[in-house]
Design a protein around this nucleic acid. Sequence first.
DNA 1: CGCTCGATATTCT
DNA 2: GAATATCGAGCGA
Length: 202
Amino acid sequence: MNCLPISFYRRPTVVVARDLVGKKLVRTIKKGHTFKLAGTIVETEAYGYTDDEASHARMGRTARNLVMFGEVGRAYVYFAYGNHFCVNVSARSDRVQAGAVLIRGLEPVEGIEMMKKLRRVDDIISLTTGPGKLTQALSITSALNGTDMTKQESELHIEFGIKPACILRTPRIGISRAIESQWRFIDPSSKFVSRKIQINAL
DNA sequence: CGCTCGATATTCT
DNA sequence: GAATATCGAGCGA
């Protein structure tokens, strides 16, 4: 079994976000043949509960964010700006009621030709450098919301990888609240990070 | 390269 | 009605 165990996700969300950098996100598609699409996670962000003004869970449960409150290690897929899907993994310590880690960047490893077709682009760099891009490259939609990411047989799961030499911690991107929290983690040696650093507003 | 804007689901005010 | 965990097209420099 190559998958990260459920205990990996039953820890503080920020710690899980850091430790997910270097792990492998795997998507299997059964369509006649079985296709495998996979990439190494190079960029993540942690989102919390009522303590986090930028989190979907900050106001409590809604139909959309239920997975953030449920069992850990599950895929939380949501539709952003009416245009793109984004994928998270639910993760939190037992003391907290909600939490998830947004996967923001991948380094493509397997199934690159199919990713190019799904994205309708040829450029490797723009294939998976961003949360909306990587869901398109791996054909991740709300149909996969709630998927158990700790099971090898799941169409979407997370496997062990190689621990990066260095992980950088920065403020999160694309939010206007709680910009002071440094809950974004990147592998600075990777070319597949959407932005190397966050420029802090004055 | 950088900036503006449209697409438009879901939630909040 | 406004904001949002985004992206890419179009435009100007």
